[in-house]
Each structure stands twice: as structure tokens, then as C-alpha cells.
């Protein structure tokens, strides 16, 4: 009686078949096509210059980091709309701590930073701690009040932005040492890899490992796929979701500090569309909006697409309003083609 097959064993897709079916690979192809296309169209292949490609990675770094975090959140079937506000608030707190501890008010006003090392260390700590605390608030509201995370984070988005404005009166924190920018924020290793990107790649690598190879990652996907099934398997889903929001918040805190080094100031009026940009990149990269399926590599690759488009269209001299139209159309086309292709391969 043994060995009764319930279904003819499906010819499991080989490595090549799997790759062709995978959205990250498809999006990598889109990226390659865009790069080569813009290269060919741009004067003197200006788009393909190392300096340009390197700058694109610098410009994408913060979005990519946030997209990696959002991948984990979406994997669990949750959403975080507050990450832009979190970046703003965390950078404000980080900048204030950094400036306050780097020297006396008179010293920093005169661009003197006698205790810069202390200030920077404390500033990093303050930014990440603020981000994590912001995430913890989201996590508590989602898991304790059992309010949908879309609504919770829509609410905390406003609260975070408002708090940042209250703390700063709406103007950016002044006297952030420009050294952060000239020694780190826009500097490239070997003239190629921007320092912030190194941080982002390192963190993304860890997160990729966590999602693919650890219990934490598997439980995240299980919760997103079926919370009921995860609970029946003995997984404590609410603490897990809470930890995911704290993790997301901490990543937003890191992003906040990277932002600070990049611009040598805070960005209290900015990051209004950051959350949407990150979520869009994650979904375009192949992660399900409804949880259970997630790919960090896909998110990383897809987050490149809008920046490549923006850069390429400016280099081609496309007029600003047409850029908006072109970006929208290309994004929709890329995802539509990917979907058709996957359906055909099934």
C-alpha cells in the first residue's frame, strides 16, 4: 500500500527554470536593459560612466535600506507607512544629540567640534534608538490594540512628522558638521562604492541571510502566509510582529543617520513619499503585498529602477513633467511584463 502517489510528481523546475520564473532576476534584466538603453541614448555613453553608476547607488542607498526593511514587514503581512516620518524624526533627534555633544553652542556655531567623535557616536546611537522606539510604538499599537498596521502607521506617520516639526519648529537642525558629508556621506571607496552604500549592502546581506536561513525569517513568512498556521505551530506571532516593527524602526534610524551624513542637515520637510517609494520597490521586486512571499534581493534590485529612470531621463534632457509621465509608464510596464512572463512559464 505504500507509495501511493496523490498526484503525478511535478517536474520540479530546475535551477534555470526557477531563475527565469523569479521576479528578482526579471527585474535585474529590466535594470540591465535600462542601463544599456540609457547608455546608448546618452551623449558619449555618459550614463555608463563609473561615476554616474556610482552616484546612482549613492542616491538609491537610503531607499534601498528602507525597502529591505519593508520586505520583512510585508513578508509578515503587515505594512509600515511611517518609515519616512521615522527617518525625519530620527535624523532630527540624531542631529540634535550630535550637535549638542560635539561642542558648546558657541563652538558649533563657529564650526568648531572639539568632541566630534563623541558627538557622532552618540548621534548614531540616538538616531537608531529613536528609530527603534518609533518602531516599538508601531509594534505595540499593532499587537496590543490589534489595530491594522496600515491605519496605525498612517497615524504614527502624522505623529512622527508632527513631533519632528515640534522639535525643530519646522526648520532643519543647524550646525551639523559638514565633515560628515565630506568625509563619509558622499565619499566613495576606491572612488566607486559610496560609503553609505557599503553600510546598506552589509545590512541587506544580513537581512537576506535572516530571511532565508533563520527561524526568525521563516516565522516572518509563516505569519504572513497564515497567521493561524503559525500560531498552531506554536509560534508566538504577536511578539514576533512587534520585533519586526522594532527592526524596521531601527533600520529607519540607520537610514536617518545616512541621510544626515549625505546632506549635512536634517530633512524636516522631506521624505513624504519615501514610504511609498520603498513599498513600491518591494512589490515590484516580487514580494507579495499580502505576506508570505518575500525577496530581499528583488527589493534591492527593484529599488534601483526609479533612480535609474530619474537619472537617465535627466541625462537625456527630458523635460521635468515628461519625466513623471515616463517613470509612471515604465514602472507599470515592467511589472505587467513580469506578470505575463510568470503566467506563461507556469
Amino acid at each position: 500500500m505504500n507509495g501511493l502517489t496523490l498526484d503525478p510528481p511535478a517536474a520540479g523546475p530546475g535551477p534555470l527554470g526557477r531563475a527565469l520564473r523569479s521576479t528578482p532576476v526579471a527585474m535585474a534584466l529590466v535594470v540591465a536593459v535600462l542601463i544599456l538603453g540609457f547608455g546608448a541614448l546618452s551623449p558619449n555613453w555618459a550614463f555608463l560612466r563609473t561615476s554616474n553608476l556610482s552616484t546612482i547607488t549613492l542616491n538609491v542607498s537610503v531607499t534601498m535600506l528602507l525597502a529591505v526593511g519593508i520586505t520583512m514587514i510585508l513578508a509578515a503581512g503587515e505594512l509600515d507607512l511611517s518609515i519616512g516620518a521615522n527617518v525625519v524624526l530620527s535624523s532630527v533627534v540624531g542631529a540634535k544629540v550630535l550637535v549638542a555633544l560635539s561642542g558648546t553652542p558657541d563652538e558649533v556655531r563657529a564650526a568648531q567640534y572639539p568632541d566630534l567623535a563623541l558627538g557622532v557616536a552618540a548621534g548614531i546611537g540616538a538616531a537608531v534608538a529613536t528609530g527603534a522606539a518609533f518602531g516599538a510604538v508601531n509594534g505595540l499599537l499593532v499587537t496590543r490594540l490589534r489595530v491594522n498596521s496600515f491605519i496605525v502607521t498612517l497615524g504614527t506617520m502624522g505623529i512622527g512628522t508632527g513631533t519632528a516639526l515640534v522639535l525643530t519648529n519646522g526648520s532643519n537642525v543647524p550646525y551639523v558638521p559638514r565633515l560628515l558629508q565630506t568625509e563619509f556621506g558622499v565619499v566613495r571607496l576606491f572612488g566607486v562604492i559610496p560609503y553609505p552604500m557599503i553600510v546598506v549592502l552589509a545590512i541587506s546581506g544580513v537581512m537576506l541571510y535572516v530571511l532565508r536561513h533563520t527561524r526568525f525569517g521563516l516565522y516572518t513568512l509563516a505569519i504572513g502566509s497564515s497567521r493561524e498556521a503559525a500560531e498552531r505551530a506554536g509560534i508566538r506571532t504577536l511578539p514576533h510582529v512587534f520585533r519586526l516593527f522594532v527592526l524596521m524602526g531601527a533600520l529607519a534610524g540607520v537610514a536617518a543617520f545616512l541621510d544626515l551624513t549625505r546632506f549635512a542637515t536634517t530633512n524636516v520637510g522631506g521624505h513624504q513619499t519615501t514610504a511609498l517609494a520603498a513599498i513600491a520597490a518591494v512589490v515590484i521586486g516580487g514580494t507579495s503585498l499580502f505576506g508570505g512571499r518575500a525577496t530581499i534581493a528583488g527589493s534591492m534590485v527593484a529599488s534601483l529602477i526609479p533612480v535609474i529612470l530619474a537619472t537617465g531621463l535627466v541625462i537625456l534632457g527630458v523635460q521635468a513633467f515628461w519625466q513623471l509621465i515616463a517613470v509612471g509608464m515604465i514602472l507599470i510596464a515592467a511589472v505587467a511584463i513580469d506578470q505575463r512572463r510568470r503566467e506563461r512559464l507556469k
Binding site: 554616474n52 542616491n59 531607499t63 541621510d259 533612480v307 530619474a310 537619472t311 541625462i315
Partner: peptide
């Protein structure tokens, strides 16, 4: 960030 992207590209072009 968007301003930085635009200006970076304009410098390249």
C-alpha cells in the same frame, strides 16, 4: 534626495 538625483544626473550629462 530627489534634488540630489537630478543634480547628479545633470552633472553627468
Amino acid at each position: 534626495n530627489r534634488a540630489a538625483e537630478i543634480v547628479s544626473a545633470a552633472i553627468q550629462a
